[in-house]
Amino acid sequence: MSSLRPDLQRVAEMVAPGSRVLDIGSGDGSLLDYLHRAKQVDGRGIELSMEGVRQTVAQGLSVIQGDADTDLDDYPAGAFDYVILTQTLQATRQPKAVLENMLRIGRHAIVSFPNFGHWRVRWSLGVSGRMPKTRTLTYRWHDTPNIHLCTIRDFTDLCTELDIEVERALSLGRDGRTRFEGAGSLANLLADQAIFLLRKKT
């Protein structure tokens, strides 16, 4: 239970005990397993890789092979308390539709993504004139799965556009440990990654 990745640990802290959770891109199921054991969460996963699905099923967890872009439509509105998407939004084909779907299916959404507004990224592009490669963004431009990278400011703009309320924003260093709360200009400059707890404005 202690081996959970630090950023996933922060995500887990946002989840209320005993709630119903859908983890999109659940990987090997470690977050779901942790939530199940530590918080008695009734969890479900969606994972693209057969290997990840197999590992998750073997832990007694429910996971379906699928992806965020195509399979969220199948879930009824309000089926979950939390819908979680960690480090994946930037790799979806339709991030906006995915985000809307998450807040249709869940009362809350938890989204984490690498912040393209980080000063190292800005510096790298500004000075070297090349697409940034950092320790959180390790791919080259032609082999990256990250087709929709955004900054924290881009993301909060989209939330405003979609009538989504930011309940909580955490700014994280690249080791996944918290730097500070909030999603302002400073966060946009200093956060390697960000975690947002969201809900639909009523």
Binding site: R44, M50, V53, V57, L61, I64, Q65, P76
Partner: peptide, 18 residues
């Protein structure tokens, strides 16, 4: 089948084996 099960929030796992 999986879609129907998801829509009633059933405990379902699904794999397409290559």
């Amino acid at each position: 089948v999986v879609k129907a099960l998801n829509s009633v929030a059933a405990n379902v796992s699904f794999v397409e084996v290559d």
